[in-house]
Write a protein that binds this DNA or RNA. Structure first.
Lengths: 206, 206
DNA sequence: TTTGAATTTTGAACAATGTTCAATAATTTT
DNA sequence: AAAATTATTGAACATTGTTCAAAATTCAAA
């Protein structure tokens, strides 16, 4: 039965179309200024159709959430080619920052968005795999660094990974959410780079 | 004219009442699940009254924002008594984390809430003073540490301060926004403490 | 080709929200 | 006591997420 296949594909395509429309608008005007009606309008469908393919607005956010982790994950995977674990770790931080600052809406969605209960339930289930996998890449790199003699005196690889993740995440979040603007840094444009340079030096000296 | 004074005081009191009612509900059921009608109901006034005293919902958020910085600031001020700058720096981090984890809604409001344009305008104006002051306390402490021979090889005190701020902010945000839950840490309850311990060791070793 | 069932799409309708504002009530001044 | 000023109200509006019966379309069988 070829018809069923084609229909399934069409459904997939429409689902994708909705998602891409949503993403475009999110990037253009921010997540909370994008309405379902906007999305429907953007792709020339009616509101109801969106709800056929996505249960919720949350469902859309969740789909984009996974897509975001997929993007970040593939950026990380490229870095497998960097043999030296310490170099790899540093490159990962750089890529992470680049991803966050180039895709602030996506990043916000992934890490800063207030999570409704259903969202959290989905996160605890299998679907959060991508996120967990991304953290494990970091953790394993830290472990590899330790095996090469780095992070001497620190035996808690998980905590080290969490601390590094928190640092880059914190810098990106403060930057993206414009909290840096209020602080009147001497050189606002470069503050994230400078902060990251400090982290690298600290990592090197231990 | 004593009447005018009394009226002014009454107005102040009602404004405060609204704010406290809002805060109570924010803490109870989260910021975005608290409506103006809820707030009005909580203090037995009508919706309209709230709008007489606060221009916006944003206006309320903004007032609480300042109150939050005031709270955090006074916690920091207590630490002036700690003479040793390095000890003071460490205590500040601890206090910061305690504040964030004890007042997650307030913290979110201060650092993670999506800022509407008017909000940002107000931030750039004088009213962000509290926030700027808080960062300066941190920065000055870092400078004092440097003068005592710490942070050797790092000459950018601002970047060091930003990096430290980002680390504790990042850890608290990830924890508060439940992003830690998805990662399946070995020991989830203690991850922030452990992460902070790593930061302290790194600071010590440089 | 025609038909009738299955599927897809629609948009009017609903409840909840932030916000406004003329009307009402309370207070103060004359 | 009357007038004027001030404070409070809640109905009304626009916009949101969401639902669902109806309309439009597609498809397999006769």
């Amino acid at each position: 039965m070829g018809t069923a296949e084609r229909k399934a594909k069409e459904k997939e395509e429409l689902k994708h179309l909705i998602l891409e429309g949503a993403k475009k608008l999110f990037v253009e005007k921010g997540i909370e200024h994008t309405t379902i009606r906007n999305i429907a309008n953007e792709i020339n469908y009616s509101v109801g159709t969106v709800y056929v393919y996505y249960k919720d607005k949350n469902d859309i956010l969740h789909a984009l959430h996974m897509q975001g982790f997929s993007m970040l994950g593939s950026r990380f995977k490229v870095l497998f080619s960097v043999e030296n674990p310490m170099e790899r770790l540093k490159a990962m931080g750089k890529e992470y920052i680049r991803f966050a600052l180039e895709n602030p809406e996506m990043y916000d969605l992934m890490f800063n968005l207030r999570a409704p209960i259903e969202f959290l339930d989905a996160m605890k289930a299998e679907e959060w795999n991508e996120g967990r996998a991304t953290f494990f890449i970091l953790k394993n790199t830290v472990i590899a660094c330790m095996e090469q003699g780095h992070f001497k005196g620190l035996n808690d690889a998980e905590a080290v990974s969490f601390m590094i993740w928190s640092t880059v995440h914190g810098m990106c979040s403060l930057e993206i959410r414009d909290r840096c603007k209020g602080v009147a840094f001497e050189n606002p444009e470069t503050i994230v780079e400078r902060g990251y340079a400090i982290l690298l030096k600290m990592i090197d000296h231990i």
